[in-house]
Simulated assay, not measured.
Amino acid sequence: MNQGHAVAVHRIEFGVDWPPGHVACYLVDAAEPVLVDAGTPQGLAGGEETATFRAGLAEAGYEPEDIEHLVVTHPHVDHVGQVPTVLEAGDPTVYAPAGVRERFARDADALADRVRANASAYGLTGETLDREVAAAVESLERDRDLLPPDRVDVWLEPGRVELGPLDATAVHTPGHQADHLAYLLDDDVLLSGDTAMAPFRPVLLHDGMDDGHTEAFPGAFAALDRLAEHDPERVYPGHGEVHDRLDEVVERDRGKLTSRLDRVESLVADGNDTLHAVAAALTPSVETRRMFSETMSALAHLEREGRIERETVEGVYRFR
C-alpha cells in the first residue's frame, strides 16, 4: 500500500513466464473500491492465478464481490485475466478504452485475412505464416471472452474521466497496444499499465500484424510526449517496480525507440533485406517470431521517413 496520497493503492502481483516474471494489477482503496486491470487468467502460468488474486484482495481487506469499479488499461491477457472472477462475484461498473469496442467487434475471419496478407507480403510462409495468423485470431477471441464487450459499461476516451469515486485523466498511450490508456489520479498517481515501466521498454505490439502495424512507432513516440506532460509523484506500472522516475523512464524509452530504428536501418544497410532476416539479427537471443510485429512496424516507419527503400520481388517486400 502506498501512503501519502488521497487514495491508497494496493498492488496484486502474478507470476508470468516472460520477463520480468510478473505482472501487477492495482486496487485503489477509495470511497468505492476501484480495481485497475485484473491480472492473469487461471492456468496461464502455474494454475494458481485465481487464488493469487483472491489473496491479494484479502490482504487489502476485500473480496472479488466488493469491487465496485473495474478499469482496464488495455485488453491483453495478463491484464484482463481475472475479469471473469470479478464479474461472476459481483456487479461492478466496468470501464475500458473506447478503441477496444471496435477492435473486439472485428470478425475473426477478416482479421485472419488481413494478417495473412500483411505477413505474406513481408515474406512469411508455410507453418510460420499459419502460426502467426492463428495466434492473431486466438488473441482476439481469448481476450474478448475474458473482457466481454457487452459487459463494459463505460467506453473511455482520452481526457478527463470519472472512474467511480475517482476523478482522473485518461492518457492515450499506444505502441505496446493501440488502445492503451494510462490513468492519472489527482495529478500525483499514475496507473500506467504497460507504459513507463522502470525495468525495460515495452515491446511494440500495437495491433500485431494487422494494418495498424504501420502506426506503432509514431504512436509510441506520441504516447511518450503525452506522458512527459505530467509529473506524478508515483507510477504504478503493470510490470516492474513502483517508481517516482517518470521523466527518466520516458526519456530512456524515447532513446531506446530511436536506437531500435537506427539499428533496423543499419541492419538493412548491411544486407538484411527481409523481415525475417532483420528480426533474426536484431535480437539473436530472443525467439525470432517474438520480434516480427515490432520489426514490421520499424521497417514501415523507416520507409515512410525515407530512411530505407522497399521493393516488391515476387510478391514479397525487400528492403534496402
Rank of each mutant, 00 (worst) to 15 (best):
E68G: 15
E241G: 10
H172V: 05
H10V: 05
L27G: 10
M291G: 01
T50W: 07
L246G: 06
E251N: 08
G4H: 07
V83I: 15
N2E: 12
E305H: 11
E127Y: 03
M1Y: 08
V154W: 04
Q177A: 09
H213Y: 15
Y236D: 04
A89M: 09
Q82G: 07
R307W: 11
D153I: 03
V16C: 11
T195S: 15
A105I: 06
A58C: 09
T288I: 13
N118G: 06
Y95M: 09
A96P: 13
A223P: 13
S266E: 15
H22M: 08
A222V: 02
G47S: 09
V242K: 00
A228K: 04
G212C: 05
R254C: 11
A220H: 05
L267Y: 02
H172M: 05
D143S: 05
P202V: 03
V278D: 01
V28C: 09
L205Q: 06
V133S: 05
A223C: 12
F221V: 08
R320N: 12
A135K: 06
E13F: 00
G208H: 00
D231E: 15
L299T: 02
Q3P: 11
A228V: 06
D37L: 02
D153A: 11
T128F: 06
E215R: 01
F319M: 10
P148Q: 01
T52C: 13
G39I: 01
R201P: 13
V189C: 10
A281R: 03
L275Q: 01
T274H: 04
H301A: 12
N272Y: 09
H301K: 02
L163Q: 03
A121K: 02
V34M: 08
P232I: 03
P284R: 01
S266A: 14
L299R: 01
R289H: 12
R289T: 08
V23C: 10
L185Y: 04
D207K: 09
D253I: 01
L140C: 06
S259V: 01
G46E: 08
G15N: 11
S139W: 02
P19M: 08
F221I: 03
P158F: 07
V7W: 05
T195M: 14
A55R: 09
R151L: 10
P97F: 07
A277Y: 07
P158T: 05
A223S: 14
R318P: 13
A223E: 04
E287P: 12
E102D: 15
P33T: 01
D179A: 11
P92M: 02
E157T: 10
E311N: 10
R307C: 14
T125F: 09
A38M: 14
L299E: 02
L44F: 14
L257H: 13
F53N: 01
L27M: 06
R310F: 14
V268S: 04
H79D: 08
V133N: 00
L156N: 02
A281F: 04
